[in-house]
Design a protein around this nucleic acid. Structure first.
Lengths: 243, 243
DNA sequence: TGTAATTCCGTTCCCGTTACACAATATAAA
DNA sequence: TTTATATTGTGTAACGGGAACGGAATTACA
């Protein structure tokens, strides 16, 4: 029975072969997991285990079980790979070209996740699972360059409309770190003073009375993101027509 | 063979039953087709043909053929139902909850389409295919209320970042019509003079030297949207952080 | 003690958004 | 023919947020 094959998924290749011979479309989920380290935006990728993609890197994905929602599937993958739960995760969109998967017709739903890179435990500590710069032209399998690019652009827009960026930082962070984060995601340079002014005026940060340490210069104050303040703030109508 | 069943799709119900018994996840496309008429935003829906949803309305959708891309499937549906090609069509996102389809596990990819409601020819002229106000609490099948709502919100954001709205209007339109369109989509009231000023400053409209007729008041000038002007305009970097 | 690096605060200028009023033009009714 | 009514079309002043920018204070380190 194909059903059981799909559920146990001990061997994805076998399932794919089965899908192909039956002419059925498979459904998978791919997670674009972003992290922030060394003032750079990173993405978590794994060495591909398909012969066709020897040596190439792949996003973390899996076939969707028939008794789990799409979101659940994405969470499962995230949990399996990073050991983390309670993380930011959102669907971006589906990729379903006929030719995108060499083994069978597989439609994949791309998810974007943001995690604190210091707080996770990778399940595989060998070099099969690694963080890579997103800006680097990495050699990727499938249509994953396209998916990664779409998710990065999605993040660039999203991070300017909602305060997601904090998921990438430790709980307490300096304003400098926050700015570095935005600069890395948006790939622009920002003015220090205006950035600071802007964020304070939004009234989202709580001043912990602590300071940075181990920095070779004057330490900055540490802040925490206050999600309640964000929620209580009534959302302004957007009315620009901004083409 | 399941493969042939999927391809001919003479009887969707049979295919769904087959999918269920095999425990396979099906994949479909649903089109949210918007139109603009009588100063209101309308959506094209069809009477559901499933017993479970007797009398309810449904979005236009179909199972994806195994040899067509997702976009192609959406175009096919659009063409079949409205007879139109060369229309605006874009993927919004996937909906794939386990329980969303009563007959089988089906993941659907939602597409948003904008068409000129006066320019199409509905393939079914009986009352099975009808335009409905989006604001009205329509009795819908499946999770289509959720899908419609998501697409409407998506459109509200999208229409402020890109000049899509013109797809809903005739080639030549008055500024009043354009404003009514935006007011209908965004569900707000706008200032006539500022709206006019804003659009002219964007330099996207060509002045046809024609005027409205058959209006019981002073006729307004008619304009055309100039897509080339839009393309040639270099896109400004957005840099707001607008939470 | 001085130098280098960074934090932190504040001001000005500019431009886009908002709010608002009045004349011109067409139709329909008196 | 005149009058009332509805809508188009234009201009301007006040406001507010964003961009550009300088300088004093604080800490580490040589």
């Amino acid at each position: 029975m194909l059903a059981s094959k799909l559920q146990e998924r001990k061997d994805v290749k076998t399932v794919l072969r089965q899908l192909k011979s039956d002419g059925v479309i498979g459904i998978s989920v791919d997670c674009v997991i972003f992290g922030f380290d060394d003032n750079e935006l990173k993405v978590l990728m794994i060495k591909s285990d398909m012969e066709q993609f020897e040596g190439k890197w792949s996003l973390l994905g899996d076939l969707v079980h028939r008794n789990e929602d799409l979101d659940e599937a994405a969470y499962r993958i995230l949990k399996e790979r990073t050991g983390m739960s309670d993380v930011y995760l959102e669907q971006v969109r589906a990729f379903g070209d006929v030719i995108r998967h060499p083994a069978a017709r597989v439609v994949t739903i791309a998810y974007c996740s943001l995690i604190n890179i210091r707080q996770h435990r990778l399940e595989k500590h060998d070099n099969e699972l690694q963080w890579h710069k997103v800006s680097m032209g990495l050699d990727m399998a499938f249509d994953h360059p396209r998916i990664l690019n779409a998710c990065h652009e999605w993040l660039q827009k999203r991070v300017q409309e909602h305060p997601l960026g904090f998921s990438l930082l430790p709980q307490k962070f300096s304003l400098r770190e926050l700015q570095n984060l935005y600069e890395a995601i948006l790939e622009v340079k920002l003015d220090r003073r205006n950035f600071r002014k802007k964020f304070f005026s939004m009234n989202l940060l709580d001043d912990t009375n602590e300071y940075e340490f181990d920095v070779p210069h004057r330490p900055g104050k540490l802040y925490k993101f206050n999600y309640e303040k964000y929620l209580s703030q009534e959302r302004r109508k957007f009315m620009g027509i901004d083409f």
